[in-house]
Design a binder for these strands. Sequence first.
DNA 1: AATGAATGAGGGTTCATTCAT
DNA 2: TATGAATGAACCCTCATTCAT
Lengths: 216, 216, 216, 216
Amino acid sequence: MATAKKKTEPRALQARAVETRDAILKAAIRIFAKHGFSGGRIEQISKLAKTHDRMIYYYFGSKEKLFIEVLETIYQRLNDAEAALEFDLDDPVEALRIVVRFNWQYYLDHPEFITLLNSENLHQGKHVKKSAQVSELSSPAVNLLAKIIKAGHQQGLFRKDIRARDLYLTIAALGYFYLSNRHTLSAFLNTDLLAKKAVSSWLDSMVDTVLRKVLL
Amino acid sequence: MATAKKKTEPRALQARAVETRDAILKAAIRIFAKHGFSGGRIEQISKLAKTHDRMIYYYFGSKEKLFIEVLETIYQRLNDAEAALEFDLDDPVEALRIVVRFNWQYYLDHPEFITLLNSENLHQGKHVKKSAQVSELSSPAVNLLAKIIKAGHQQGLFRKDIRARDLYLTIAALGYFYLSNRHTLSAFLNTDLLAKKAVSSWLDSMVDTVLRKVLL
Amino acid sequence: MATAKKKTEPRALQARAVETRDAILKAAIRIFAKHGFSGGRIEQISKLAKTHDRMIYYYFGSKEKLFIEVLETIYQRLNDAEAALEFDLDDPVEALRIVVRFNWQYYLDHPEFITLLNSENLHQGKHVKKSAQVSELSSPAVNLLAKIIKAGHQQGLFRKDIRARDLYLTIAALGYFYLSNRHTLSAFLNTDLLAKKAVSSWLDSMVDTVLRKVLL
Amino acid sequence: MATAKKKTEPRALQARAVETRDAILKAAIRIFAKHGFSGGRIEQISKLAKTHDRMIYYYFGSKEKLFIEVLETIYQRLNDAEAALEFDLDDPVEALRIVVRFNWQYYLDHPEFITLLNSENLHQGKHVKKSAQVSELSSPAVNLLAKIIKAGHQQGLFRKDIRARDLYLTIAALGYFYLSNRHTLSAFLNTDLLAKKAVSSWLDSMVDTVLRKVLL
DNA sequence: AATGAATGAGGGTTCATTCAT
DNA sequence: TATGAATGAACCCTCATTCAT
């Protein structure tokens, strides 16, 4: 069907193009997550993506723009995952537990998220600021927490004077810090923070901290 | 003054050497804090220290070794500051407040501490691991908290089942994360986290979180 | 000529690449021959090749790898030249003379061969050891000499107990040493070893030495 | 005895000075022999001599001048060793054997001699030319050989038309080349030229070559 | 849509050497 | 006699990027 000239069908070409682009983005996430923005080499990325340096410029324009897309991608993914969270507002305590656990599990499952943010903060948010997309993308988590707090309060379980944003920051901080700083903390505290027992014990501590903060 | 012997005092020379060495170290802290390990340029450091690239190698051997000394220095300083903390164990609640406030203020006063640790964690603790000194240097803060917890428990104020290390991590996490991630959080939350009101409000939230965690 | 397809010939590009690569190799031979491996500067080579430092790394990877290719090249050339040698086994004495003369002339015509080998031996064969190619490349000269010795013996002219390898080493040593050490020998012996008369006289001496070694 | 003032006795100081100087020279011979002139580092030498870089300049003025002294030293040693050679002119054949053996053994015992000369020839005799001493120092070996040749001729054993200098070069070449080029030859010939059997077999070959050259 | 070739500005580091006491 | 401190030129190499098909 269709008249196949010398040229392969444009469809096929476009498909290949998308493939290459995706491969680059995927590789970039891995490399930047491992070495940060400045430490991540264009060549490493192109090699991992099984293409050529030149293609990165062809599709993304520059290392910076590629990094911005990387950030946008991982933010989008976090948002999607948060949006998919399901829980019952009739049980606000359990709902809060779910949020804390989700947050913790997400960090554990996506170590690249932490390294990429670390790198970005080291550069003082230089790239995030340039991304129109990210700045429009406010975490649904805060709204989620607002709902839970409200429900808890209405059921006479939670304090009233809890700000959703503070609660969000508390939850994020506890999980993020533990993982992002595990290397220096290991040297400092002389323990393996990633041991199974340590990980689950810290989850318990976080849940405890968060619940005590909001419960009357 | 004093009777100058035939030999010129070697002290005079050494004093200048110490000056140069210190200047390099000081400059390195500033530069590495600003740009991270990979981003910090040897030339920037030597210029800021008003000396030559060569002297960095003369005194420290390599960029890596210089960075290790930088880390050791800031760790040592934190330790010294923590050790100087004074409080009354008869009032464990106030003691805990002091610790949280100190921790927060230390991060605010020493932004380089956060950036340097961020950079080091980005490199997976590569340099800290190489430092014999740091690994021997366990934070006095944990012991401090242990004492406070014990006193609070004995006075019938605090829970018994609180581990000092968890409390330490909680306090550190809340303060550190807020500051280290302020750039990406700004994009996410669309607020200026360093506004005076925001800063003091977060301190209140932290104190609240921590006290509620330990109080019976 | 021929019909140019839509796509520009990649050959055209590659041709330029080959040009650059060859120019670098050629320049490297000259520079390394003049200053040895450590003394030869990357910048000198790239300038002589009318290209940029960067291209040396683009095509060869490192100074060491470039030097290895240089060694492989000059070995290959010697081999090719030896392989092209023509002589008549019916006259083994004359054949031997030809080999000695060829060897001597080759050293005279390719002073870079001696300097490069000198440099390599100064580095204890470090690069040659890394070359898979060179180690597989055994000099045809030894086999050649074996044939001559055999023919000479069959004609009742030569001794039987002469090992081709020893004869090869003898011939090489006499010519190589004279030229490679001419600078220190000059200081020692106080003569100009490269004077025309001296050069041809030494050739006579070598032929004499070699023939007397093998003749019955 | 004597009035020991604050200063330690000048004798003692001078002795220490000579010690330091000698230590530097000795270290320089080792380091330059191992890495050549350009490859030998001032710091390596001062470390091996257990003194400081500065002392090398104090005693020798520059790296070049130190190298010149190194060359003068090893030349002097060779001369001394040659001068100490004892043999009986009544047996010129044996005398010649002794010279060849001595020469070979000297190279084997003083590998630094070969490397240093190699390095010097790589630099085109630059340093030897600057040494007044070396250029005045003509090898006694040539005169020695002249005597042997004369004796051999008078006894009706040797040819008349042998030039002592050619014989000297022949003997030197055979031994020197074998050792100086052993690294590249190993790659080329695929044998261990320093194996005991190989070493003694080559000595036999050399003696054979030399005797056949001179015997009637 | 894709790519081989080229670029030039530094990057960390090393070197022999001199200053100043 | 001896030495710690300082110097600056250069060296090899790497990087993100653009040219030219």
